[in-house]
Design a protein around this nucleic acid. Structure first.
Lengths: 191, 191
DNA sequence: TGGTACATGTAACATGTTACATGATTAG
DNA sequence: CTAATCATGTAACATGTTACATGTACCA
């Protein structure tokens, strides 16, 4: 066995296929829900990895269902490849946070724009925190295992930290007029 | 002006070149220090982007110095391209955290391995927090601008949150025998 | 009968990673 | 004189992104 070199995206798909046969569409949805918070993937990647893994014998295509649904089943070789992957040393995380780049070069950004960017991102994170809170509660209620809880707790912790950081920013970075941000007017700019 | 489509990595290099001519080597070091915490880049990318930007007229190569050092200067076209880039809407961040994948599939990981992975990563983050604390202090003392402080504060906040999350994990996920983890023996396991 | 959600797939390109090749300069 | 560090660059490949093409089934 030459131990086909799995990448983390492919390995995750194999991981989900341990729970039963699934189609690319289902796998994408499952992955985005369960690992999407710390491992992004796209539809295109999913189909590519599935095709590659099928060619390598790690998964087997089943019969098409309705709407051309193409289910895949994990093979013994797939289980072996996954088992080898999951016990490797995980590399460190990478974060790519474009808003922080914009802030790092903030001297060059018109203040109105910078303020708008910061406020918009803050709202996005507030929304994500709310979503994690719902997911976390639901998982706890449903008696999810400690591994699922740990990942959800990470999301919660991360989003709270990001919001705390937003709150710590000096006011100038949050200010700036509303521009293109709703039904204009109403901008109660003080001072 | 067709507004050459900058990617964030190239744009960042242009951003640093506003401070004066620099070589690829210097740019790499500068970038890793100033934005490396939230925007990873490699040596190979730096040279590739510099070559592409020079070809596009955004930067100009100066005379070679000692040791083949090749300094680049930003051109007016480069400043214009950067100015356009920096006021675009920044996309959302992407995080790719392999350890969390390993935990998500933790059911399939031998407990000793999982514990070791978690402990090792915790140490890495403790080290990074310490590094951020030093950088943050130094920057404050040196009177760095609010933009630099904001990015350093992000690093601090993020690393503290990650460590808090590690501390919140159930003990089983941190346990497991020491294996390959130093000069064996001495394992004062209590209880 | 027309729009929306489902579902798969490809193509083209951009970006990121790893490894290697080459050579200059400095410090010991 | 030799090892370490500085410094640039390329090649090959892996991964990620965006856009498009195609068709099915459901539901109002």
């Amino acid at each position: 066995m030459p131990t086909y070199p799995l990448n983390p995206t492919a390995a995750s798909l194999l991981g989900f296929l341990h729970e039963g046969p699934m189609t690319g569409w289902d796998l994408l949805a499952t992955a985005q829900l369960r690992i999407g918070g710390f491992w992004s993937l796209t539809q295109s990647q999913v189909y590519r990895e599935l095709a590659a893994m099928a060619a390598a014998g790690l998964i087997a295509a089943g019969e098409r269902g309705r709407r051309e649904r193409q289910p895949y089943t994990i093979t013994p070789a797939g289980r072996a490849a996954f088992a080898a992957w999951v016990r490797r040393e995980p590399p460190e995380e990478t974060i790519r946070f474009p808003l922080l780049l914009t802030i790092a070069f903030g001297r060059s950004v018109p203040l109105d724009d910078l303020g708008r960017f910061v406020r918009e991102h803050r709202e996005v994170h507030a929304g994500r925190l709310a979503a994690y809170e719902r997911l976390h509660d639901a998982a706890r209620t449903a008696g999810a295992d400690a591994y699922a809880m740990a990942t959800l707790t990470f999301g919660l912790t991360y989003e709270r930290a990001v919001l705390a950081w937003f709150a710590s920013l000096p006011e100038e970075m949050l200010a700036g007029s509303e521009r293109g941000d709703g039904p204009a007017g109403e901008a109660t700019s003080p001072a």
